[in-house]
Simulated assay, not measured.
Amino acid sequence: MKAMTEKFVSYEKEGHIVKITLNRPDKLNALNKDMVDSLYTAWQEFEQDKDARVAVITGEGKAFSAGVDIMNPTPVVRSVPGIGVEVTKPIIAAVNGHCVGVGLVIAFMADIRIASEDAIFMYPEAKLGITGGMGSLLAQTIPLGIALEMLLVGDGISAQRGYEIGLANHVVPNGTVLKEAMQMAEKIANNAPLPVQALKKLARDTNIMQSTGVGMLVTSAISESADSQEGIQAFREKRKPVFIGK
């Protein structure tokens, strides 16, 4: 097991799974400069580690993240996977308690979101008279009208409502969200990493398949990989495949 702790952010790796924890519970994991820098480092570490296949991000204590620290505001874009730093591997957000502002952005830029029953999703920038604009990308995850309601009104929604609109994949009892997220991460980590990463890439940019030949190049390379042959052979032999990411 590999563990790395920077100020307010912990990074733990066990097997092929990385767990990133926002660890400033006395401030409801509101992001300050140290947290932003540490998150950027964590995403880079995850992306560059060839043995890491899935990341789970969660918050310590009673909140996932209350957003940017209003008392000590700092640019936060570097903390967001897919916006401030490229992450081609799957990310699961285990959302506990309040998920606000940039916390919500981090959650919806993850690929899968599992929410505890007490989770609250909120993007209050319009109420505060500010915006960094990143919240607009919420419309890529949920229907446009509902996204605009959340962005323009600024009120919070419950975990159940989040599930109904497709923001949360699952809602689970309080205290179990990290366990559920890690179980899903294990299932993903057991799959072949090349098609997992390719499917994430293609799903996030459907134009790749629709208007270019990149999609075919990506998938044809996978079909010729050692993992592809191993998966087929393991199926024939009725055993668990051993994937190596090549």
Rank of each mutant, 00 (worst) to 15 (best):
Q44P: 12
T88W: 01
V36A: 05
D69N: 09
E60Q: 07
V95Y: 05
I57D: 01
D49F: 04
L31C: 15
N96V: 15
A52T: 06
V95Q: 06
I91K: 03
V102W: 06
K27P: 06
V100M: 04
T74G: 13
P73Q: 01
I70R: 14
M109C: 14
N96W: 01
V102C: 10
I20K: 00
I91A: 03
Q48L: 13
F46Y: 07
G103R: 05
V77G: 13
A110H: 04
A52M: 02
R53M: 03
Q48W: 06
P25L: 12
N72H: 13
T74E: 05
V80Y: 01
V56N: 10
Q44I: 09
V76E: 14
N96H: 07
V68P: 08
D49K: 00
L31N: 12
V105D: 13
P81R: 05
V36W: 06
N72E: 11
G82D: 03
A63Y: 11
A94H: 01
D34R: 15
H98K: 11
I106A: 07
V102Y: 11
T21K: 04
P73S: 01
N32D: 15
K27A: 09
G82Y: 00
E47Y: 00
N96L: 13
V85M: 11
V95H: 15
D49S: 11
P90E: 00
G103E: 07
V76C: 09
F46D: 01
I112N: 01
M71S: 10
V85S: 04
P90G: 00
P75E: 08
F64W: 08
R53C: 06
D26C: 09
K89S: 07
A93T: 02
T41E: 15
R53T: 11
I20T: 05
F46M: 05
P81L: 10
I106G: 06
D51K: 12
A110V: 06
V87E: 02
D69E: 15
D34N: 14
T58C: 05
F46W: 03
V95F: 07
F46N: 02
W43N: 05
H98C: 14
D26A: 04
A93N: 03
G61I: 08
V87N: 00
F108W: 01
R24P: 08
G82N: 09
Q44V: 07
V77E: 14
F64V: 06
Y40V: 10
V105M: 07
W43I: 14
I70A: 11
H98M: 09
I112M: 03
I57T: 02
G61Y: 12
G59W: 03
G84H: 04
R24C: 15
L28V: 06
G59R: 04
L104N: 14
N29K: 10
T58P: 12
V100H: 15
P81C: 08
D37R: 15
I83R: 09
G84W: 06
M35A: 08
N32S: 13
C99Y: 10
S65N: 15
I91P: 01
D51V: 03
V102H: 07
A55L: 08
